[in-house]
Nucleic acid binder design. Structure first.
Lengths: 248, 248
DNA sequence: CTTCCTGTTTGATCTGGGTCAAGGCTTTGC
DNA sequence: GCAAAGCCTTGACCCAGATCAAACAGGAAG
């Protein structure tokens, strides 16, 4: 069994999309209590499968720490990643009983879970939660559409540059760092996972990363540790228009 | 100005995602009244642009009849379609003031519109609407993810077969026809639009359609009129697992 | 230390789909 | 009727990225 439940202090779950504490600040106390009472935690080790496509899924969850991926696989084994869940991202769909995608922990992962039925009941009773979920789903849809442009029309080099920019941006946002200046972070994905994200082979990913390194767009220390000397240069390579949607 | 307002009888808008009449049947009368009072219609001719990416967008809408597309364009002109709006689909995002994509009418198009601000107010007051919108957005997200698998991992032939299957399925659903037996319909997209949908060139689209026709997977009468003698065969060619998500 | 294992890099070759180019088929307008 | 404009098809050729293959790097186990 890949799953184990564990104890985490209330405030450790600050990035939950359901925003326990935000609800607490704005709403009646019993809403907070209801959410707090039904939440629990699960942790997974890097590489573990959280759930298989088609399996019964009786919970919804949000990522507290670590990274998970959603992937689709064709019968002959071709794989395409269709979602990348970073801390604060939401997993699961109210109103659906089975998982539509394989969900895998690519790093050690802690999720804050809610059993689906009581969560759905609470959603009906608490419009804030549904509104927040709508907002998050619309953001995911926008991300999916940017991803579609990448998959359909970008070159291998542009795809790699785009992915590195996306990870750098989310990393900076999570740490509340200023987006300008040299960005430094670790790639949380293997070459093969990047290939699954980008619709490429792992060899092409490796070659294009080497090319970006040779051209000075990125600086690599080992295989994972990346420094970006000039973020605008990276965005140019990604084929994005100037700001590329950098938040803040 | 590409837009003109027009009068349509109340019941002509039966496919509005907001479901005036469903709301009417289930809810208090004043909810229905509020929606009915704020709705209005716009019609566009085939080829007209509904709105450009980045433009101010002060309304949300749903397609009543016709087809619209959402596309993203890179500076050098590469285009990728990221959404295909058929009757009953929703356009616009509560909480955003500018359009994120180019929206184009590919056939003559009638949309049922609501000014954004009063619609948002009504959403806050009427949880049903937000819940319905969440449900629709989640469906769109699922469609986007299936589309990502297509763009990232399918061959040109599979992409064409998939698109034809998607159109056939939606066409059958709209007309409430049984999905089995020979399906007959018109392709609502030009070869170039299909190419933008699939991340291909129009020449490749043309060649692959010819190949599917030669192999008897589809029967073409003229350039647009398609008959599908065996839907399961088409799904095999599309690389989808058996049912391919056919609703009903 | 050596061996194994997993992830990665790099090279050689192949090929699906892009690019460039030439016509063909309808519809519209004169 | 003819001409022009769209849209579509088909052919010839090319190249970005896939495939096949070999070797490398670093960590874990013995």
């Amino acid at each position: 069994m890949p799953m184990q439940e564990m104890q985490i202090a209330h405030h450790d779950c600050g990035d939950c999309p359901i925003r326990h504490r935000a609800v607490c600040a704005r709403c009646e106390a019993d809403e907070l209590t209801a959410l707090e009472q039904m939440k629990y935690y699960r942790s997974y080790q890097a590489g573990q499968t959280v759930i298989w496509s088609g399996d019964r899924m009786d919970f919804v969850a949000s990522v507290v720490t670590g990274i998970a991926t959603l992937t689709q696989t064709m019968e002959d084994g071709r794989r395409q990643m269709v979602g990348l869940l970073l801390p604060s991202d939401f997993l699961g769909r109210p109103g659906r009983t089975t998982a539509a995608y394989d969900v895998t922990a690519t790093t050690d992962l802690v999720m804050c879970c809610f059993r689906k039925k009581p969560f759905e009941d609470l959603m009906l009773a608490t419009p804030h939660i549904g509104q927040r979920l709508l907002e998050m789903t619309l953001d995911e849809l926008d991300a999916a559409r940017e991803w579609m442009l990448l998959l359909g029309r970008k070159t291998a080099r542009e795809k790699i540059a785009s992915l590195i920019a996306i990870i750098a941006r989310r990393d900076a946002t999570l740490r509340l760092k200023a987006p300008k200046g040299a960005l430094v972070f670790d790639l949380p994905l293997t070459r093969e996972e990047m290939a699954d994200y980008l619709g490429l082979t792992l060899e092409t990913v490796s070659r294009q990363i080497s090319a970006l390194k040779r051209d000075g767009v990125i600086v690599l220390d080992g295989k994972r540790h990346v420094t970006i000397p000039d973020f605008d240069r990276l965005l140019e390579e990604a084929g994005d228009d100037s700001d590329g949607g950098m938040p803040g």
